[in-house]
Design a protein around this nucleic acid. Structure first.
Lengths: 112, 112
DNA sequence: CAAACACTTAAGCAATCACTTGACTATCGT
DNA sequence: ACGATAGTCAAGTGATTGCTTAAGTGTTTG
């Protein structure tokens, strides 16, 4: 198995399209073939393949071809990497707000 | 305050660029002006403005102009929305793996 | 008031995205 | 072997991105 070191760029880029998110949503329920991913999508198969390529580039999905069917599955580790990045910024902001609140409570001023 | 109903498309799109993530990172430490955001970025001010516009379109950042300086701040609620979407897919996948593990432990077969 | 400051708008350009259609390549089932 | 199935490659098109430079618009500040 090839190791993967996907960039946040490609991960978020991969999630920034409704067709691709719908594919991820489907895959979160279990592995699927390319045609299964395509079925609900109202676009040509090659279009789906291109979306799939972006999901793989972002490391979010891996696939393996057996016989004539390619089976795709989600990579939860990479998903949690994106999740962590967001979470860190958010909590840093919230910690800052807390410190600010403490300061304002201790002193005696008015905010904006 | 205007309510915001930003799409996941625009949120993830906004996070899919290193310059914009660096801006978010800076803003997670506290509000900043446009030039402050631009300073570490090795690109023209108009370029930074366009990135800022995408961050605002995604609802991730809000800004307010006072006098001649525009002050930007992060919107943690929208960030946590993106976080939640990822988290839901990931945990759904992991729950599935658990069920599968239980099944394999109990039975001794393979599914479909 | 005039110059400096902090943006802001507009226009342009190369690269990438999100598709398409058409042709092609391997299986698989009978 | 034959046709259907599942996917793949290639080329082309219009829209969007990520920048740029040049020329503004208001706001301070000396």
């Amino acid at each position: 198995m090839p190791n993967q070191q996907p960039s946040l760029d490609l991960m978020f880029q991969a999630l920034a399209d409704p067709a691709r998110r719908s594919m991820v949503e489907r895959l979160s329920r279990g592995p699927a073939s390319v045609s299964e991913l395509a079925r609900p999508l109202d676009m040509s198969l090659p279009a789906v393949m291109q979306h799939l390529a972006m999901l793989e580039a972002g490391g979010i999905v891996a696939s393996e071809k057996i016989g004539r069917v390619r089976t795709c599955r989600i990579n939860p580790d990479v998903l949690s990497l994106a999740e962590q990045w967001i979470n860190q910024r958010r909590t840093q902001w919230e910690r800052r707000l807390d410190r600010l609140g403490d300061f304002l409570a201790a002193e005696d001023e008015e905010d904006k």
